[in-house]
Simulated assay, not measured.
Amino acid sequence: MIAMIGAAIAPGIAIMSYFYLRDSLEPEPISMVIRSFIFGMLLVIPIMVLQYIMQTEWNWRSGVVAEIIQSAVVEEFFKWMVIFFTAYKHVEFDEPYDGIVYAVAVSLGFATLENLFYLIINGLNIAFWRALLPVSSHALFAVWMGYYLGRAKFSQKKEQEKLFLWLSISLPIGLHALYNAIFLSIQNWLVVIVPFMLVLWWQGLKKVQRAHDYGSKNLSSRPQ
């Protein structure tokens, strides 16, 4: 059981550490990051209950559209809500890259507990693939979410803030939906998912650099 718990939490902790240590401007309080991670974990049960209701009470049991709504829309929406109400309005959210840190923390908290449940049900033999695909994909969707939350937070105009807030929720849902659609509709999904994940990492790291660039500009414009 200890080995299973370790295999479940190690990928999330490793990826979280990477994105946290990339914050070279004004690193976030570790207590805030841990709190966001825990909030993400707490989302798992209510989301699973809602998904169960959608499958049993609403008869959304099969089909690509039903699967995408239950997974991509529900999961990304609730993660976005937690980040918006617990981190976005917090005083510690004081540079654009912070959006990525908090979004990744919430998403990896969710992915870590979800991963533990999957390993308990299916065994350690799937731990490697879970780390490479579902856990890391949750983090990468969060990079897009956090990047645009950071842009929204430090927008000069209300119209810009609204646009970036919309992008911060719609793009992760779209990426998550595409990720799910690959598994659900393509028989030889491995041929497609590998380049898809590589592109996600490439674009995610570009978002990290851009967030740092905006953060540097923001710090240099502050009154001394």
Rank of each mutant, 00 (worst) to 15 (best):
A105R: 04
W129T: 14
K89I: 11
L167K: 12
W58I: 15
H176M: 06
V64M: 13
N125D: 15
M145L: 08
S168T: 04
A111F: 12
R61C: 08
Y148M: 06
L178V: 13
A139E: 07
S71L: 09
I120Y: 12
V143K: 04
I68P: 02
W58P: 03
E67I: 05
I68L: 12
R61V: 13
G99D: 11
K158N: 03
S71R: 08
D94G: 08
L171K: 02
Y88L: 07
V82I: 15
L108T: 07
L163E: 09
E114P: 09
Y97N: 10
I69A: 05
F128C: 10
L119E: 13
E76T: 04
F183V: 01
I182D: 01
A87K: 01
I69W: 00
S185H: 02
A142V: 06
V64P: 02
E95Q: 13
G174L: 09
S136P: 08
A105S: 14
A103G: 15
N59F: 12
P172M: 01
H176S: 04
A142W: 04
I69V: 14
W129L: 15
N59A: 14
F93N: 01
S155I: 09
F84A: 07
F183K: 03
V82R: 00
I173S: 00
I68H: 02
V106A: 12
L133Q: 11
A139H: 05
V49Y: 10
V106D: 00
L149K: 07
S137Y: 09
A103I: 06
Q156P: 00
N188C: 04
N188W: 09
I121M: 11
A142F: 02
W189L: 02
N180V: 01
A177R: 09
S170F: 11
L178M: 13
I53R: 08
V74E: 10
F78A: 11
F110E: 01
W129N: 14
L119G: 11
I100H: 02
E75F: 09
F85M: 09
V73L: 15
L175S: 08
E114I: 05
A105H: 02
A72C: 12
Y88P: 02
E161S: 10
Y88E: 01
Y148T: 04
L167A: 08
L149V: 06
D98P: 03
I169Q: 08
W58L: 15
K162R: 15
H138R: 10
G150K: 06
V104A: 02
Y147K: 06
D98Y: 07
F77E: 02
V82W: 05
S155M: 04
F164M: 07
W144G: 00
F84N: 05
W144Q: 05
V135C: 10
S71D: 00
F128P: 02
Q187M: 13
I126L: 15
K158M: 10
G109N: 03
S168P: 03
L165K: 14
N122M: 12
A127H: 11
L132Q: 13
K153M: 02
Q187I: 14
A72M: 13
T112K: 03
F183N: 07
Y118A: 12
S170C: 09
Q160V: 02
A105V: 10
E76R: 01
S170D: 05
S71W: 01
V82S: 01
V65E: 09
L163M: 12
G123F: 13
L113N: 06
V49T: 11
A72E: 10
I182P: 06
L149S: 00
Q156V: 11
Y179D: 05
A72S: 14
